[in-house]
Design a protein around this nucleic acid. Structure first.
Lengths: 226, 226
DNA sequence: ACCTGTTCGATAGTGCAACTATCTGCCTAG
DNA sequence: CTAGGCAGATAGTTGCACTATCGAACAGGT
């Protein structure tokens, strides 16, 4: 197909497609002359992925390029996750690296307490330290004990994520699915958390009777047990 | 204190503070003449919150204004969560509202299956529908059955969140803490999930024996980090 | 009272990211 | 054989989040 078909199928303006080609987000098509280049279904697919990562995932064009170029490396199934992880942007202000590093011991203490096997070069360690720093500056101290109970739900989610990835047959597109599961499930989980917060807050309001909103029915629903 | 002190204490340039004042993110100080306005500790606090919400939380200036102005309304403790929730940006492309709505029944089906008490006007319903739409366009279908196991960890996290909020004494700043817990814990949870994924993937690699330790090659593409 | 430096409020400008538009020459399909 | 689409390059636009400048009005020290 030609660029106009690609545009139509993916719902992306031709100008934007050219822009993505220039920026290396989209691999070039097969040129059949000076004015004709052919694109395939994989371009449609890639384009959809780019749009999802940038709009829903909130990634910048540069970060998206990192992810998709990393994806294009041929890899063993379980390495793809690492590649995706390491290509993820970890917004740590360069001016604050030192301040962030002061919180790293807390992160390592947590990881030790959990017995988690995480490489020392993992960018997530510092990312977590940065967030803990922010929180503590705002007066909300999260100690190892406070964080530990959050780890179990996180682990449960991670197991589900990997279950899904393990059952994907399409080896060629495994990296793509890994990126999708890691990145696009994030907003899903965030929203689930908010929905759960809303539900939980209704339940607690029913007991304390303090909310002025909808009269909460004291309907002792089957709350998911711990 | 004067604006220069506020700037020094918060680490924010004077120009930026003026900008926030103009935009209504920061309440005006007490003017004592045409060239002197006094600010208090609450301004320092608010400024730190603004910086955290915009930089770490990734909120736009407009979204941050929505949150903080909503925060300034005097409210019952349990309503604050609702106010924060409803001020959150839910990035749903206006051009796709119809397409998103097609996925709403799936969301409601999930909520019914869970027995969650969520108001019909909750913006989260549509936000979830939008994400599910994205995923299904990318070829990853998440059915109610697939999502159910994710709900329990989400509920566990939500309970921890509300526990924390319940034990906060400072009623005046409860809304502030609610915003922090809802928004700034999000990156923490996202990182915990990734750490758990990394750990889990190591474990599974050990069992299947596929390369997980020798060949990882965490893609050493040195991106110039700012 | 005088001088120096700060502040206020308004307005205009900057830098960056993500597109979007235009242009020229070529080529392809009908 | 020609009308129209396409490639590749370059330049322009839009929106956001600041940042810089300016004149008038003080404030605080001497």
């Amino acid at each position: 197909m030609r660029i106009s078909d690609l545009s139509r199928l993916s719902g992306t303006p031709v100008g934007t497609i050219k822009y993505y080609l220039r920026e290396g987000l989209l691999p070039p098509g097969r040129p059949l002359g000076a004015t004709l280049t052919l694109y395939g279904d994989e371009h449609v697919q890639r384009l959809r992925l780019i749009r999802a990562l940038t709009s829903r995932g909130g990634l910048s064009i540069a970060a998206t390029r990192d992810i998709v170029t990393a994806m294009d490396q041929p890899l063993e199934p379980l390495d793809t996750l690492k590649v995706v992880h390491y290509s993820l942007p970890t917004p740590v202000d360069a001016a604050e690296t030192d301040a962030v590093d002061e919180h790293l011991p807390r992160v390592d203490q947590l990881l030790t307490a959990l017995g988690w096997d995480v490489s020392a070069e993992s960018p997530h360690r510092r990312a977590l330290a940065a967030s803990l720093m922010d929180l503590s500056r705002l007066g909300l101290e999260y100690s190892t004990e406070d964080l530990l109970p959050y780890a179990e739900p996180a682990a449960a989610v991670a197991r589900l994520d990997l279950d899904r990835l393990e059952h994907i047959d399409d080896r060629l597109r495994l990296a793509e699915y890994a990126a999708i599961v890691v990145l696009l499930l994030e907003p899903v989980l965030a929203v689930l958390r908010r929905l759960a917060q809303e539900n939980e807050s209704h339940h607690r309001a029913a007991f304390t009777g303090t909310t002025g909103e909808t009269a909460p029915e004291p309907h002792p629903q089957d709350r998911p047990q711990d």
